[in-house]
Write a protein that binds this DNA or RNA. Sequence first.
DNA 1: CCAGGCGTTCGAAAAGTTTGAACGAGTATG
DNA 2: CATACTCGTTCAAACTTTTCGAACGCCTGG
Lengths: 306, 306
Amino acid sequence: MTNPLRLESLEALDAIDRHGSFAAAAAALYRVPSAISYTISQLENDLGVAVFDRSGHRAVLTPAGRLLLDEGRRILTATRELGAAARRVADNWEPELRIAVDGLIPPTDLWPAIAAFGAEHPAINVRLTEEVLGGTWEALIDDRVDLAVGVADPPAGAGVRRTAYADVAFAFCCAPHHPLAERTHAVTEDELRSHRAVVVADSARRLSPRDAGLLDGQPRLTVASMASKVAALEHGLGVGHVPRAWVAEALAAGRLVELPLERPREAAQTWLLWRSGAPGRALEWFIRRLGGDRDQPMPRASQMRS
Amino acid sequence: MTNPLRLESLEALDAIDRHGSFAAAAAALYRVPSAISYTISQLENDLGVAVFDRSGHRAVLTPAGRLLLDEGRRILTATRELGAAARRVADNWEPELRIAVDGLIPPTDLWPAIAAFGAEHPAINVRLTEEVLGGTWEALIDDRVDLAVGVADPPAGAGVRRTAYADVAFAFCCAPHHPLAERTHAVTEDELRSHRAVVVADSARRLSPRDAGLLDGQPRLTVASMASKVAALEHGLGVGHVPRAWVAEALAAGRLVELPLERPREAAQTWLLWRSGAPGRALEWFIRRLGGDRDQPMPRASQMRS
DNA sequence: CCAGGCGTTCGAAAAGTTTGAACGAGTATG
DNA sequence: CATACTCGTTCAAACTTTTCGAACGCCTGG
């Protein structure tokens, strides 16, 4: 049993319903009424089903006709969209762009770019995932994302290109009611060691996980994301370094306090990474927007962009 | 811009991918290779997009071709299914049958019938909702469902037909640690009045709600469903009548105890209801299966069917 | 009752598809 | 390195399908 349904029949059905009569539909399709009659009776023959009830003066849809009309419209739409999507792909626009943002960068950082992209290219989907440390790199290498944003120390790796993204400065924080908050002078490493550190777990599935900026012997609370880490710090569960952009508001509101450190952690240079090879145009759009001119990959002086 | 995509092109594309070459696809479609060439180049012209890369010996899909193939298959499937669905509708099978089951009946009661129906008619969807008292009737009248199962006192109403369903017997229950559980002799109405009754709220949205089997002046806890009522009783929040089928297991396990009543509530006759008019065949199937021979609507002697 | 719109039917004309043969190009096989 | 085979394309001719235009019968509204 081969496919017994023609798109032209559905198109005709749609036009008839839209314009109210065979004659009007014919006019709308720049055809003669008999052609519409022919198309519909062909549909009815193919299907072995009455689509219109002609017992009255004007033809009226049967229940089966109603179903064909309603569902047929979905098929027509899908078909038209498929045509458009194919054209876009041929023009090197990806149907979907997948972006991983590293825990160092608040995802809100990307919203303006994503909103602007969505306004320009409403038909292209953007999928944003959040990863931590090696997980961001791994998502790119494993082809789970097309663009990695805010990776701090990308391993040397063939097949990956990069351009500078933001410098991320850290604040060493704890809750106001945390014992360390009493301190007025810079905290030494020895003092630190007796307080629990909140750390974010590397989200790598495959590569060996690494932890960042930790003193040996310090007790830990490991959480899954930077957002959880901030929440944990606010609840006084420990201390830790957090990118300033993540805690600016909490510091201003007094939910967290910043502690001076004897050896403060220096700002981290972060990168925009993508696989080399022919990038799609959506990827190029984001590289240009987020990374600026990628032919001059130099570290940016700014901290986080808002 | 009219629709520039033909189903035959997608069909050809599918056949080429499935059989590995233009020639094999042609054979599978009982056509000559040049016809396939023609169809594909027509697709490429319509779309203005290369679907195959012919630079090598064998034609190989471009990314756009890949998209057309993958998405095109979905469209082909949808189209075929639409044809089949239209035939079913013309044959008086509903695309979806909506059933409301009254709170008196455990929904599990219907599972065997629904499973059997699904096995016979896998393409017809069944939507099961749960309603209480007037809500069941109202869902039917408002055309939110096609069949109402287990309605106890259907109001006289034109345009509705019915046949007997199960007789529902009630058990008056409370938790074993409830004060009334101490009683060894039949409970009088006066005694009852001082204990909270758990009642199920009528789910009617429009019609005036009614409450069943309540003594005036008795404090109440109103819950949304029979399942909640059973749970409330088990937690000792009150007392109340429950259809035996809902609590057989809880009584056997000792999570509830049955109390003898001075004036026990008599079993309720329940009905299967549907709107009169030409019933679809799925509806007929369920009426026949659940209600037996509907030309002899007589109360059934059994209690609940399992 | 008449004018006008509706949808169908039919033969003829137009448009579109399929065919088969010929061709060039690539790939296995000996 | 021939040879035989398969692949996909092109082209004119045969064929099929769709569209057209005119004629017709039906119903509705004035």
